[in-house]
């Protein structure tokens, strides 16, 4: 199968290793990965900020990038929020702008766009990450299901099930897991104090698990949680508590293991890199 990677703007610019690991996983399964280079952003930031006029060219750019680039069978994004935006915001923005043609094209693309765990589970038939992907991660991890994956894409237990089948992983239940971390894009700046109060509770719950890492399927939420953990100097029995994207754990194998933070240089900003 030929899979077009929708890297998402935040992963592209700030967490390139997440996209590289997504490529690694898909190629390991024998699929071809292409990267339509004119892609940029789903437009969610503009939409959620109410800047609908500004969102239109971004949506147009996204649709064109995937229409005009190399041929592909499905689109894969290592983000629940951006995959959700493609389906649940782009057509709406286009219709508002009176561009039904763009709306229909965006809808068509969104119908073939999958969040990573969705693609692995529903399309590629992965039920055991250790067995089928060779995933190996012998560390204590807790999992935060991000809101848009959970409530818009209805990912259910897909991400959790993949994680639980990673070899040697010590997956710890996160209390109040379904509570939002408080990111919400510009919400974290427009309502910074409320956002911080939500983040504090999330960080406290993460720390309570004793895990050294919090994982999830959305780099943006992990950036937020990681930024809070780092600021508060949150610690587990194994040292500082950080965040790591689900794709990184799935890509980690016995042969090429992703190392947990052992010393400062590996951990910065509360995020495992």
């Amino acid at each position: 199968m030929r899979i077009a990677l929708f890297a998402t703007c935040i992963v592209d610019a700030m967490y390139p290793e997440v996209a590289r690991d997504t490529v690694t996983i898909l190629e390991r399964l024998g699929h071809e990965v292409v990267f339509p280079e004119r892609q940029a952003c789903c437009g969610q930031m503009h939409v959620n900020s109410g800047d609908f006029a500004g969102a239109v060219p971004v949506v147009e750019g996204h649709v064109r990038a995937f229409e005009d680039g190399p041929d592909w069978d499905v689109i894969c994004a290592p983000s629940g929020s951006c995959a959700a935006s493609a389906g649940h915001q782009q057509p709406m923005i286009a219709r508002r702008a009176g561009d039904d043609d763009l709306a229909n094209r965006a809808e068509d693309l969104a119908g073939r766009t999958y969040e990573l765990s969705q693609l692995l589970t529903d399309v590629l038939g992965i039920t055991d990450a250790g067995e089928q992907l060779g995933s190996y991660f012998p560390h204590a991890v807790t999992y935060h299901p991000s809101c848009h994956g959970m409530r818009i894409l209805r990912l259910g237990d897909r991400q959790r099930d993949l994680l639980s089948t990673v070899q040697d992983i010590d997956l710890r239940e996160l209390p109040q897991a379904d509570q939002c971390c408080g990111f919400g894009g510009t919400f974290s700046m427009k309502n910074a104090e409320v956002s911080t109060a939500m983040l504090e509770d999330k960080a406290e719950n993460v720390v309570s698990t004793g895990a050294s890492l919090c994982t999830g399927g959305d780099a943006s939420c992990l950036m937020h949680i990681g930024g809070g953990l780092s600021r508060t100097g949150a610690r587990s029995p194994r040292g500082e508590v950080g965040t790591v994207h689900l794709a990184r754990i799935l890509a980690s194998t016995r042969e090429k293991p992703l190392l947990p933070p052992r010393s400062e240089p590996l951990l910065s900003g509360g995020s495992l890199r």
Binding site: A7, V11, D12, A13, T196, L199, G227, S230, R231, R273
Partner: peptide, 18 residues
Amino acid sequence: GKWTSSRDIPALPDQSFR
């Protein structure tokens, strides 16, 4: 600064995925 008042921003990578 509304962000950095309570959260760190991670160190940036050397190059983007793109």
